Amino acid sequence: MENASRSAEAASIKQPREVTGYPWPAELMANANLPFRPADALVTTQNPPDFGWPFVPGADGYRLELARDAAFDGGATASAEPAINFYNFPHVLEEGTWHWRVRFHTPETGWSAWSDVRKFRIAEGSVPFPVPPVDELLARMERAHPRVWTNPRELEAFRERRLHGVAKTVFEHARDSVLSRMEDPLPPDPTFPYMDRSISSVSPEWVKALQDLRKYADAALDHLLKAAFVYLIGGRPRDRRAR
Score class of each variant (00 low, 15 high):
E154T: 12
E156V: 14
P133R: 07
P204L: 09
V166A: 14
A11I: 08
L210N: 12
W149F: 15
D222E: 15
R175D: 03
Y22P: 05
A157Y: 10
A83D: 15
W206N: 04
T45W: 15
D196F: 05
A157D: 14
A4S: 15
V207Y: 03
L34W: 09
A78P: 01
P190E: 08
L137S: 04
V102D: 00
P38V: 00
T77H: 05
G61D: 05
W114S: 02
V207A: 08
P188A: 08
P190L: 11
E205N: 02
D73L: 10
K215G: 09
V19T: 12
P190K: 05
G61N: 06
G21M: 03
V131Y: 02
R161A: 13
L221Q: 12
E95D: 11
Y87G: 03
Y62V: 06
K14A: 13
P185Q: 06
A174R: 05
M29C: 09
L34P: 06
V19G: 11
K14Y: 08
S180P: 04
F129C: 15
V56Y: 02
P35W: 04
W53E: 01
L186R: 12
G234K: 01
E183A: 14
S126V: 06
S126G: 08
D69E: 11
W114R: 03
V19R: 15
Y231R: 13
G235R: 04
S12T: 06
R197Q: 11
S198W: 04
H105P: 02
D176I: 13
A174N: 06
Y216W: 09
V170E: 04
N47P: 03
V134D: 15
D69W: 06
E65S: 07
Q15V: 12
A217H: 14
I199H: 06
A220P: 01
W206P: 01
P188S: 12
D239P: 02
R63H: 11
A76H: 08
V230Q: 00
G165S: 03
I13G: 05
N151E: 10
K14F: 11
T109H: 14
V92C: 13
E27R: 11
P133V: 07
G21W: 00
P82W: 01
A78D: 14
I84C: 05
S12D: 05
E108W: 04
R17P: 07
K226H: 06
A144D: 14
L137T: 01
I233D: 00
I84Q: 08
S126N: 11
R240C: 08
E18D: 14
H91I: 12
Y231M: 08
W111C: 01
V92T: 13
V56K: 01
S79M: 08
A67Y: 03
N3W: 09
A70C: 09
G61I: 02
D69I: 07
G75E: 04
Q211V: 14
F192T: 06
